Simulated assay, not measured.
Amino acid sequence: MGIELNTPETADLGRALAALREWQSDDAPMQLHPGDLGWFWRFGADATAAAVRTWSQDGRVLAFGFLDGDDVLRVTTAPERLHDAALAERMAADIADPERGVLPAGKVNVEVPTGAALHDHLAAIGWGTDEAWTPLRRDLTAPVEDPGLRIETAGPGQAELRAGLHRSAFEGSTFSADHWRAMASGPEYADARCLIGYDGPDAVAAVTVWSAGPGRPGIIEPMGVHADHRGRGHGKAVCVAAAAALRDLGASSALVCTPSTLTGAVATYRSAGFEPLPERLDRHREG
């Protein structure tokens, strides 16, 4: 049987997510993580399923795509298929043809793990490179230092506070308590934590961390500092707390990725013990 492109039904999404979890490894380049889907779950289970594309053969998922908005596709593959030319050729053809329902016509971006064969196949059909991203990693073998802030784990009673911190940190965000509750109801949140950092009585920063299971890397998605409390080291502190939470969840390392142009964000993560990895470039079609 050949390689098949599918959009899983909501009820079938668990199998695809299980494959994505299994692919997470400290030996792999920075890639799509189950936590990315967990964060998107704030829009509900049906919306999350509708944003997923899988490439399968003989009932086995070989590659996973996630539409993170209308014009951005984030993809990864099973580790042993990262350099598979036949899979990459099929994925490139599906991605490039709007009628196949992966990406629309016009300007679009594809996030591909560094070194994947898909880069070469998209380049061969005229896709260039676009925005540079900086992945960063912190090893969690050793215990994590005290963050220097009081840290609380957010539950339903703090949903409004958590959402308000996010809206303050990210101008234009519409994240709400209802979004938080939808996210927390998703299956990936069983291995996730929302943390709130306090400076005295004031809630000053928040972060959500996602584990992919013991012995696998976890990610930070998202982290933000309240607009009224910036420039005081709270970003560093809450990132340290995030690393500690992931270690408690059994993660082998903590990962985060940010646009390279956000030099302040890169500096914040580095100050919290995260080491930069080689830059990653999106693939881009002008239209």
Rank of each mutant, 00 (worst) to 15 (best):
L13W: 05
I196P: 00
L249I: 09
R283S: 14
C194Y: 06
I3Y: 01
R74I: 00
A212Y: 02
A92T: 06
D84P: 11
H179E: 13
E160V: 15
A272D: 09
E221N: 14
G218L: 05
V266F: 00
L161D: 04
T141P: 06
L67V: 02
M30T: 04
V108N: 05
M1H: 03
E99S: 08
G287T: 12
E111R: 11
M91H: 00
A50V: 14
T208I: 08
L136V: 11
L73T: 07
A49W: 11
A241C: 08
G2K: 00
T129C: 10
D139P: 01
M223V: 15
A85T: 08
A265L: 07
E279Q: 15
T114Q: 11
L195S: 01
A88Y: 02
W23D: 09
R100M: 02
G273H: 05
R137K: 11
P104F: 10
A105G: 13
T208L: 05
W55F: 07
A182G: 12
E221G: 12
G35D: 05
M91S: 04
P217L: 06
R285S: 02
L161S: 04
M183H: 11
A154F: 07
L73D: 02
M30V: 08
T141A: 15
S185V: 06
D12W: 08
T10H: 03
P29Q: 12
L149M: 08
S25F: 06
A132N: 14
N6M: 05
S173W: 15
V256C: 11
R21P: 03
P79G: 06
D199V: 02
V225F: 06
P222I: 09
V112I: 02
G59V: 10
D27P: 01
A227F: 08
R138S: 08
P276V: 10
T54A: 00
D120M: 03
E275Q: 11
R162W: 10
N6A: 12
H284S: 13
A177W: 04
R74S: 00
Q57C: 05
T114A: 11
L118G: 05
I220Y: 04
I219K: 09
E171V: 13
H226L: 03
S260H: 09
W180G: 01
A184Q: 12
R100W: 02
D97C: 07
R162C: 04
R81H: 14
A159P: 00
F274P: 04
Q158D: 14
A227L: 14
K107D: 07
L161A: 05
A192G: 03
A241E: 03
A205E: 00
E152I: 09
P156T: 14
T263V: 00
P278K: 14
A205K: 01
W55G: 03
V256Q: 03
G172S: 14
A206W: 00
E80T: 07
R90Q: 02
W133K: 13
T258D: 05
G115R: 13
Y269P: 06
D228Y: 02
